[in-house]
Simulated assay, not measured.
Amino acid sequence: MNRYHRAIFSGAGAFIAISMLCFASDLQSQWLFIMAPFGASAVLVFGVPASPLAQPRNVIFGHLLTAFIGLLFVQFIGVSPMSLGCATALAVSGMLVTETTHPPAGANPLLIMMTGQTWSFLFTPVLVGAISIVVIGKVMQQINARIERKPLS
């Protein structure tokens, strides 16, 4: 697959994943399934799926860990310039120590703290959304592998 086909295919995967999460949010008004960092996750998962930063463990646990840190700060420490910086620093260090580095997840503490999210945010959109992106990414990789194996007639 040449770079143009790969770019279109990657864009199609991102379109499917993000649109599905947005559509699910619209259908179920009590739950949110989308957040801005997922746009950056889509770049990695669909654009460079072989990257260590795009692996399922990194996507899911990177988002979970950093969201958890942001929620801890919202609930127990509060939001200030210093706490925003501290939470982000802990998120970066935490991902590196646990080997779950996923750069888009670095935005989670900021997003969560600046919008005052509650613990339910950890489940949806964070967990449900990250798993959805990973699953769609794996499906797209399988489709891509089949396309590349078939000779063009």
Rank of each mutant, 00 (worst) to 15 (best):
96 L>W: 02
97 V>N: 02
93 S>N: 13
98 T>G: 04
84 L>Y: 03
71 L>Y: 11
99 E>A: 13
67 A>F: 04
88 T>W: 04
69 I>N: 05
93 S>E: 02
70 G>N: 08
109 P>L: 11
77 I>H: 02
103 P>E: 14
98 T>K: 01
100 T>I: 12
105 A>N: 10
83 S>L: 00
97 V>D: 01
68 F>Q: 03
99 E>T: 10
77 I>F: 07
67 A>H: 04
87 A>R: 11
76 F>M: 10
98 T>E: 08
79 V>F: 00
78 G>P: 03
67 A>V: 05
66 T>W: 00
93 S>Q: 00
106 G>P: 01
91 A>L: 10
104 P>K: 01
81 P>M: 05
102 H>V: 07
104 P>Q: 06
76 F>W: 15
66 T>K: 03
101 T>V: 14
106 G>M: 08
65 L>S: 10
73 F>R: 08
87 A>D: 13
83 S>R: 01
90 L>W: 07
92 V>Q: 04
103 P>Y: 08
97 V>I: 15
94 G>H: 08
85 G>P: 01
76 F>A: 12
88 T>E: 05
68 F>H: 06
105 A>W: 06
68 F>K: 03
97 V>L: 14
87 A>W: 09
72 L>Q: 12
100 T>F: 01
72 L>H: 06
88 T>N: 02
89 A>W: 11
79 V>G: 01
84 L>I: 13
69 I>F: 12
95 M>I: 01
80 S>D: 13
108 N>E: 09
84 L>C: 05
103 P>I: 13
86 C>N: 01
70 G>F: 02
83 S>Q: 05
109 P>G: 05
99 E>K: 15
89 A>C: 14
90 L>C: 14
83 S>T: 15
72 L>F: 15
106 G>D: 09
78 G>M: 06
89 A>F: 11
85 G>F: 12
95 M>N: 00
106 G>F: 01
65 L>Q: 09
102 H>I: 12
85 G>N: 11
94 G>Y: 12
103 P>T: 15
94 G>S: 12
68 F>L: 14
66 T>I: 05
90 L>M: 11
101 T>E: 13
70 G>C: 09
83 S>A: 11
92 V>F: 13
78 G>N: 02
75 Q>V: 12
81 P>G: 14
101 T>G: 03
92 V>H: 00
67 A>M: 03
65 L>H: 03
68 F>V: 07
83 S>C: 05
93 S>A: 15
75 Q>K: 15
78 G>K: 07
102 H>R: 08
69 I>V: 15
107 A>M: 10
106 G>R: 07
65 L>T: 13
102 H>N: 04
99 E>C: 07
95 M>Y: 08
100 T>P: 01
